[in-house]
Computed example of a mutant assay.
Amino acid sequence: MCAMSTQVQHQPDNSRFVIMVDGQEAGLALYQESQGVRDFHHTEIYPQFQGQGLSSPLIKAALEDTKNVGLKIKPTCSAVEHFLRKEANAQFRALIAD
């Protein structure tokens, strides 16, 4: 089995991050940005790509980008909320807007 190539791209014009697998869009994380806060309200990995552990790298890249541009997050999406509850991702909890 060969390793798949994954890449996360930010598409600010569409208020989303997409994860690409071998050049194919495999899923996305949608957000709305307002007053310095990105509200992550929907994360989806497309059915043919599910079960490959793609949501974590997608969410991690989205949150790292949000941190790097100095914004806060609102984890409305259950997948983002679940990601933040994991101890391994505790460093992102400081990004949660009050």
Rank of each mutant, 00 (worst) to 15 (best):
Q32H: 13
V18C: 08
V80R: 07
G53T: 10
C2R: 14
Y31P: 01
S56L: 04
G27E: 07
A3E: 15
F83I: 05
Q24M: 11
N14P: 00
D13L: 14
K60N: 10
D98S: 14
V69D: 11
M1W: 10
S55T: 10
A29L: 01
A61N: 07
Q91Y: 04
Q32E: 13
Q24K: 14
R85P: 00
R93M: 06
K60S: 13
E87T: 14
S78K: 11
G27N: 06
S78V: 07
Q91A: 15
H41D: 13
L71V: 05
T43M: 06
H82L: 08
S56P: 06
D65P: 04
Q35M: 06
M20W: 05
Q52P: 02
A29Q: 01
A29P: 02
C2H: 13
F49D: 07
K86A: 15
I59T: 07
K60Y: 11
S55C: 11
I45F: 09
S5P: 00
P75I: 02
V8A: 05
Q24C: 05
Q35D: 15
I59L: 08
L95F: 00
L71C: 08
G51H: 11
L95M: 00
M4Y: 10
A3M: 14
L30P: 01
R16T: 05
A79Q: 11
Q52N: 12
D13N: 15
P47Q: 01
K60T: 12
P12D: 03
A79P: 00
I45P: 08
A79R: 06
I45Q: 09
G53P: 05
I96E: 08
K60H: 14
T6I: 15
F40M: 02
L71A: 10
Q24I: 07
M4S: 14
